[in-house]
Amino acid sequence: MAFLRNRRRRAALALVLVAPAVAELTLGSVPVRMLWLVVLYVPIYGAGVLLIREVVRRTGGGTGALLLMGLAYGLVEEGLALQSLTSPHLYGAAGWGPRPWGINAPYAELNLIYHAVFSVLLPVTLVELMFRDLGRTPYLRRGGLIGTAITALLGVGLLRVSVPPSQDPGYLLPGRAALVILGLAAASVVAALVLHRRRPASSDRPAPGRFRVGAVCAIAAFAFLALLFPFAGAHHPVFLPRAWAPLPMAVAALVAAAAAWRLRRWSAATGWTPRHRLAAVSGALIAHTAFGLVSHTRDPLDTAGLAVIGAVMILLLHRLDHHLATGTPDA
């Protein structure tokens, strides 16, 4: 019993560390020269994603529930804590494309889907593969769950009082917008808790090769990011005029939907294994770090640092794949 409790604690701690590492470090959003900034993100990312995982697994939710909760997470972080979904100044996001109802539309599409996938789904999947003997059982007891919820809430406040005042002074989210964002986040949470989609019917077709799975996820992840995030000196998505931004937005949505549909079909195939899941995760992570090298690094030190982070990430993913292949515990 003590061994099992220790394993659960280690799994919870791993998720607290993996979530901000995947979402911020491996993309280069936090430059190597400013790694100390990760401290600001550990409470909201670490505790927030751990709380999401615990709630979803306790209520029997699967991938769809994690994505919906990830959407709610993105609405809270970007909409309420950073105010970036509506700010006319922060990150220059207002200039990317149209702003219907005062919403930075391309930025919102990019970051809400990014948080659902890279901030929540992928970290939870990685840690569950690392501690696969625990399956989908909760990592925390009631006291730990309450403490995690409090820490996540404090993390929202910490981000709110640290980033907007320094990066976007003078802007305050309108009350009506705050209520709409809260309502959308609450609706996402409710949907995650009550709507449980059935798994697709098992297919007689064999599962595709792991390289193919990883390659498809890598291409989809890189394409999605490149379609929405202005990079290489561009001020609007894919170097198009600002008024044309809805076009790459639509293509990016199709890319995300097609990748999700394909993975759902593949996961029902005969022979789909945890190594296939890891291949999907690895492809997406490697592609998003590659995109970070293209789009997020301007200083040579930051470029070298992100390249080292990417290399270490690949080695760790390879190690996890080896443990999955041999059936030995990784953590």
Score class of each variant (00 low, 15 high):
residue 201 A to H: 10
residue 259 A to M: 08
residue 230 P to D: 04
residue 158 L to N: 04
residue 260 A to F: 05
residue 271 G to W: 03
residue 3 F to E: 14
residue 264 R to N: 10
residue 241 P to D: 10
residue 16 V to D: 08
residue 255 V to K: 00
residue 133 D to F: 00
residue 142 R to M: 09
residue 221 A to K: 04
residue 293 L to D: 08
residue 114 Y to S: 11
residue 130 M to T: 15
residue 83 Q to R: 12
residue 245 A to S: 15
residue 280 A to H: 03
residue 113 I to K: 02
residue 34 M to W: 11
residue 122 L to E: 05
residue 228 L to I: 04
residue 61 G to W: 05
residue 214 G to E: 03
residue 217 C to G: 08
residue 243 A to T: 11
residue 235 H to D: 04
residue 236 H to Y: 07
residue 303 T to V: 10
residue 170 G to H: 08
residue 233 G to H: 07
residue 331 A to Y: 14
residue 194 V to S: 10
residue 156 V to E: 10
residue 97 G to S: 07
residue 217 C to M: 14
residue 244 W to M: 15
residue 194 V to Y: 11
residue 222 F to V: 08
residue 77 E to A: 05
residue 175 G to K: 07
residue 134 L to S: 09
residue 291 F to M: 05
residue 36 W to F: 12
residue 4 L to D: 15
residue 44 I to P: 02
residue 240 L to K: 01
residue 215 A to V: 15
residue 326 T to A: 13
residue 21 A to K: 01
residue 224 F to M: 03
residue 208 P to F: 04
residue 48 G to A: 06
residue 71 L to H: 02
residue 261 W to S: 13
residue 99 R to D: 05
residue 77 E to F: 01
residue 127 V to C: 11
residue 241 P to H: 03
residue 230 P to V: 04
residue 221 A to Q: 12
residue 2 A to H: 14
residue 262 R to K: 06
residue 51 L to Y: 01
residue 157 G to A: 12
residue 267 S to M: 04
residue 61 G to A: 03
residue 245 A to Q: 09
residue 164 P to K: 12
residue 301 L to F: 11
